[in-house]
């Protein structure tokens, strides 16, 4: 257990080793905040939305996407730095190491949600007193639980290709598009609506919306359904991940693609 903790903590530290305080703040707080402002302004052009709920769900979306991308680039960074082959060659289960390291993203995402919510009070004049912060943290936790495996799945492609940015961009688009935070999923064609239920973060965002909009009567059941779906997505994705990762690792060992060139 202690080793797990060390792995997560080291990975968190390693991520920001090259940052100074200013770039750390910019990366963690300013950039997601500006992204939120951009989308909120765009959405508010429609003039029909509950602005508080839009801001909060967008903060969650920005934080989870930014934090989850890290899990995708772990392997690719290792490959660029030339340490990937050492990890693959080690006697431990490689996937377990990578998975544990990517869990550091959860700490990240929670920080990246709480600070912008406090800032939103001053910048966007949102009333934050009525927000249930524990519910927000649970939402982020659920969202990350499902987003990390998807990001890892994409990241494991770096075992066989060096062009990862393309897939990372696709990942960001898919999560943004189907999350339901930028526009209501009901605007989508029926088939896409069904698909969006299986995309990570969609259910967490619905969970958050149900809480922020305070639709009282059957709220508890809804919450259970949303969180249940998110956890199932997460479990399925982890299983798929383990299988695919093993396959890619074998291919990489055979094809000799563990180094950059």
């Amino acid at each position: 257990m202690r080793r797990w903790g060390t792995l997560i903590w080291l990975s968190y530290k390693e991520q920001y080793a090259t940052f100074n305080l200013i770039s750390f703040m910019v990366y963690k707080i300013v950039q997601p905040m500006i992204q939120v402002i951009f989308f909120v302004l765009l959405i508010s052009k429609n003039g029909d939305s509950n602005i508080k709920s839009v801001v909060l769900t967008n903060i969650i979306l920005a934080a989870v996407v930014n934090a989850a991308v890290y899990s995708g680039v772990i392997l690719s960074n290792e490959r660029v730095q030339g340490t990937l082959k050492l990890i693959v060659a080690s006697r431990n289960d490689t996937f377990k190491i990578v998975f544990l390291r990517s869990l550091a993203g959860i700490i990240d995402a929670i920080i990246m949600v709480i600070v912008p919510i406090i800032l939103a009070k001053f910048v966007l004049h949102i009333d934050i007193n009525s927000i249930d912060i524990i519910a927000v943290v649970i939402t982020v936790f659920l969202g990350m639980l499902a987003a990390i495996p998807l990001s890892l799945l994409i990241g494991s492609m770096s075992l066989i290709t060096t062009d990862l940015n393309l897939f990372i961009n696709l990942f960001i688009f898919v999560i943004n598009f189907f999350s339901g935070a930028l526009f209501s999923s009901q605007k989508l064609p029926y088939l896409w609506q069904v698909i969006s239920n299986f995309i990570p973060l969609h259910n967490s965002i619905q969970f958050a919306m149900a809480i922020f909009n305070e639709r009282q009567p059957h709220i508890n059941w809804q919450l259970v359904i949303f969180s249940g779906r998110e956890i199932s997505i997460s479990i399925v994705l982890i299983i798929v991940n383990v299988v695919i990762y093993k396959k890619f690792e074998r291919t990489a060992q055979k094809g000799g693609t563990l180094e950059l060139y």
């Binding site: 989308f39 765009l42 429609n46 393309l166 696709l170 526009f183 605007k187 989508l188």
Partner: peptide
């Protein structure tokens, strides 16, 4: 020759257009 760049000039405009279309569809 870089697939990421091909993505940026061909796929990304499609994705951005779809995203903005749905965001602004009540407009």
């Amino acid at each position: 020759s870089r697939s990421t760049y091909r993505f940026v000039i061909i796929i990304q405009p499609i994705l951005n257009t779809i995203l903005l279309y749905f965001i602004l569809s009540n407009k």
